[in-house]
């Protein structure tokens, strides 16, 4: 066995590594290259230095999109994790304790499956469905539920609420996965710890904050990074749900959609690549920062 170890390992690695190099690393390198050109998306191009980045700096829409990404980055993970933690806690240790063993609330096995449903739907389908839920006239689901005397809520057509509507869908779609993730994390916390705490007369709230949360920290950290990266995306929802291409009045504009519009609609692939470079560094910085900050916290805990 030892004899053929390296060919064996290489045999396994070569295909995925090649794919990764071509379709991920290669694509990134090319993006960096293109961000310095005036490529339209067709034919040849000229190198124009950092002109694209200068243009980016002066582009008000870029800043609007960036601001929206940051809003989502701040709000979405917090809300998602808070809900997911709450539900996971209820599902696992929220119920009565029976025979000294803490359990989830009644019917938790069923809920666990239901919570995961949104995750099974393709994001595009979710977007279409919620487009109807938030329909701006009486045919919209929510407006249909409101009394007839109300004038319809505009939801996605109202620049004050459009981004929030998309945020809600993001959270709705993500929660299931994190409930399962946190449930798994909670499952690995020893029963005896809960028992001991319960014997000391700890309430559910104390259990949650003093035991579950600290022992779940690693999982939370992972969740935070995942959600943060998702917050930099949002492309599918914006593309399908938003009114007038990231509107109204750019109210739902995000960076990923700007990349799409510039690359494929405006024939400014070089400029789109420059936004891509910015997005790349933003995501990288975010991931590094999160891991850094939360690690220190973990030590403190």
């Amino acid at each position: 066995m030892r004899h053929g170890k390296y060919p064996f390992i290489i045999g396994f690695l070569v295909v995925p590594l090649a794919l990764y190099l071509v379709f991920v690393v290669g694509a990134y390198l090319q993006m960096f290259q293109l961000s310095l050109t005036d490529w339209s998306g067709f034919g040849g191009f000229n190198y124009i230095g950092v002109d694209n980045f200068v243009k980016l700096w002066d582009d008000p829409v870029f800043w609007v999109a960036l601001r929206h990404n940051i809003y989502i980055l701040i709000a979405m993970p917090i809300v998602t994790i808070a809900f997911a933690l709450f539900f996971a806690f209820l599902l696992n240790v929220g119920g009565k304790s029976r025979g000294g063993v803490t359990q989830g609330v009644w019917g938790s096995k069923v809920y666990r499956v239901i919570f995961f449903f949104p995750q099974l739907l393709a994001l595009a389908i979710v977007a279409v469905i919620f487009g109807r839920v938030f329909g701006s006239d009486r045919s919209g689901m929510l407006n249909g539920l409101f009394p007839d005397s109300w004038s319809p809520w505009l939801f996605l057509a109202d620049e004050r609420w459009a981004l929030a509507c998309i945020g809600i869908v993001l959270v709705w779609q993500q929660i299931g996965f994190y409930v399962v993730l946190f449930s798994a994390g909670m499952g690995s916390i020893g029963q005896e710890i809960y028992e001991a705490a319960a014997l000391d007369g700890a309430t559910k709230v104390t259990l949650f904050f003093r035991i579950t949360l600290p022992l779940l920290w690693d999982t939370l950290q992972v969740a935070w990074v995942y959600l943060g990266i998702a917050a930099f995306d949002c492309f599918a929802l914006v593309n399908i749900m938003s009114v007038n291409k990231g509107g109204p009045d750019n109210a739902t504009q995000v960076l990923s959609y700007q990349i799409y519009l510039n690359a494929f609609q405006n024939s400014q692939a070089g400029y789109a690549s420059a936004i891509g470079v910015v997005l790349f560094f933003l995501t990288l910085t975010f991931a590094a920062l999160t891991l850094r900050v939360t690690r220190r916290d973990a030590v403190n805990a």
């Binding site: 938030f134 329909g135 701006s136 006239d137 045919s139 919209g140 407006n143 319809p152 505009l154 939801f155 996605l156 057509a157 009114v243 109204p248």
Partner: peptide, 12 residues
């Protein structure tokens, strides 16, 4: 105009 048309698609 009906203001809710801002949120509608052409087919609607």
């Amino acid at each position: 105009i009906d203001k809710s048309f801002l949120g509608l698609k052409h087919t609607e």
